[in-house]
Design a protein around this nucleic acid. Structure first.
Lengths: 119, 119
DNA sequence: GTAACTAGTTACTAAAAAGTAACTATCAAT
DNA sequence: ATTGATAGTTACTTTTTAGTAACTAGTTAC
């Protein structure tokens, strides 16, 4: 008996799914999105400002996540030669270009939550 | 000396960031996006079809992730009273409505990867 | 009766992510 | 000299996530 096979996943689809994975990897972890969000909505911030903004984050985590974001070219770190030193973090062009995705995810999540509360 | 304070994050922004977190939570883990992708691009599939499609997934993980997606109303599970039993998984309306987000993430990820290779 | 297919489950292990607490170095003010 | 701020680091523990391997229960084919 012949089976009705589902069509194979096209290369295009595989590439798209890989793109999704890449994007997710950049944003993974508990703190990356809130960090990017804070920088997006409030503009460049210093380490301690971010710490205060992101309620409950340990300095270790903040430092680690910022390094990660910097390595992935989503955030820049600028040291100013003031006394005491000032370190400012800001989004790069890439980081800023995530906004449409984050907006879409945010809107979807809000709608989803509303729907779930209705059930 | 007065400090120039960054403006506070508006409630709207906080809600959006929460929405992003909600959406991320639904999609978190290594396998959720590939599962949704497979169901989106190939249509409803059986357990073993999914296993074969998602290279390397252990039955435990597949079962766990499908349960998770089902609990979150993104996927339906239908048992057909055939011999032997057939179990089909499909996306719900909600699951399908993720496609615009996944597309956006996919496209962004593809562009990002291209740019990174140029550096 | 034994091998194989379906759709899973169970117990255990390994690896990754996150959190805790204490600490460093530099400077400034009291 | 002590307190307090900035911007982190280090060692250690806990928690979460993922993977391995073996197993179950029902059915079919040989």
């Amino acid at each position: 008996m012949k089976k009705k096979e589902a069509p194979e996943l096209s290369t295009r689809c595989r590439v798209l799914i890989q793109g999704v994975r890449d994007t997710q990897d950049l944003l993974n972890g508990k703190w990356k999105t809130p960090i990017i969000g804070a920088l997006y909505y409030r503009g460049k911030m210093r380490f301690m400002e971010l710490r205060r903004e992101l309620d409950g984050i340990a300095p270790k985590m903040l430092s680690q996540e910022l390094k990660d974001l910097e390595m992935n070219h989503l955030v820049t770190r600028t040291v100013y030669n003031t006394m005491p030193v000032t370190v400012e973090y800001d989004l790069t062009e890439y980081g800023r270009s995530l906004n449409s995705i984050l907006d879409a995810m945010g809107e979807w999540g809000i709608k989803y939550r509303e729907q779930m509360l209705k059930l």
